[in-house]
Design a protein around this nucleic acid. Structure first.
Lengths: 178, 178
DNA sequence: TAATCGTTTCAGTAACTTCTGAAAGGATCA
DNA sequence: TGATCCTTTCAGAAGTTACTGAAACGATTA
């Protein structure tokens, strides 16, 4: 069975997308399924995923479920066919918005919340020694800087998402002036 | 030994920073060492890290080395003391610039390169069937969209880094207008 | 109602990542 | 030069995460 250029190219993309995802704490298989669906021109069923990616039914089922929970993949039914088919969100901007929101929820929000809590704890005083009072000062300063950073980065990200593809040219032109 | 508020607060931050890092594919211990050094008002040595974080000497050594390779931590020598001390980059903006650059290198650049390669492979034609020609069209369309997205996101990120803390207020005001 | 077809769940296993501790290495001191 | 003190390396152990495959479940059909 000679592989076409189409299949080779698709396999390359899927492999790389999976590797990338792994470096962001998303399981490789989940990303591979997403890539396969994203590149596909029509919905695929569990058996398609199993065959192309060489994975078990259970694995396919679990990971598809996660993709659906993220909102990156939707279920599709075909009349007269019992099987479920899956279709990926095809708008790239929408897709990255979903991915970014999810990552922000998991990676940024908890640390921002913790910074607040840590500063409260520090403010409650009760330092054991003069040395710790000084160390506490540096500590609080660093936390404050970080809080400011996240606030700004967050605003910028929101602006990016709100702006979207259509007005992006305008945004970039403005940036040059700053 | 009663723990001070300072120590409790510090422990909380370190734990959370470690958890976060784990969800970005950075080892928990590496992040914990970084947090400890970042919060500290003075350089610490290997034994300090081992004691506070309850880790082995080997573990401390390996992870400190990585932090130095990233540029997040620097070695410090004290006259008349054989031990090496470590000091973290203390400017938050600088710190996130380093982290972002490293993550971009590992997470974004490889996929951008792969998109280019995949499009070349597709263009070489050699489709096995009429069906594949159509699927290839959708495939190429998706890749093109993704390429555009990364180009724009990259420009925006560069602007963010170039702008830095000082002019950020100005940047945010501009964004509201878009 | 039972048979068929497909999906989901989950315990056990496999694969991978991180950590330890001991040995080797290297610098400084006497 | 040898002794001391600290760092680095790395093989194996421990811990973690992902995957399989079989059993349970659920829906549709006859």
């Amino acid at each position: 069975m000679p592989e076409s250029q189409y299949e080779k190219s698709r396999a390359l993309f899927i492999r790389r997308w999976g590797e990338m995802a792994a470096s962001w704490g998303i399981s490789r298989t989940m990303a591979e399924i997403h890539a396969l669906l994203f590149l596909s021109s029509k919905p695929l069923c569990a058996d398609d995923l199993m065959e192309v990616l060489q994975i078990s039914r259970g694995n396919a089922s679990m990971n598809v479920r996660q993709l659906i929970a993220w909102g990156l993949v939707h279920r599709v039914h075909h009349r007269g066919d019992r099987r479920e088919y899956f279709l990926a969100e095809s708008d790239v901007w929408q897709m990255f918005e979903i991915i970014s929101r999810e990552r922000r929820r998991r990676e940024i929000e908890p640390i921002v919340e913790t910074i607040g809590k840590c500063r409260e704890m520090l403010a409650e005083g009760n330092h054991a020694s003069a040395e710790q009072v000084e160390a506490g000062g540096v500590f609080d300063e660093r936390l404050t800087d970080m809080q400011e950073f996240f606030t700004v980065a967050n605003s910028l990200f929101n602006a990016f998402v709100r702006t979207g593809r259509s007005k992006m040219g305008k945004l970039l032109k403005l940036l040059v002036k700053v």
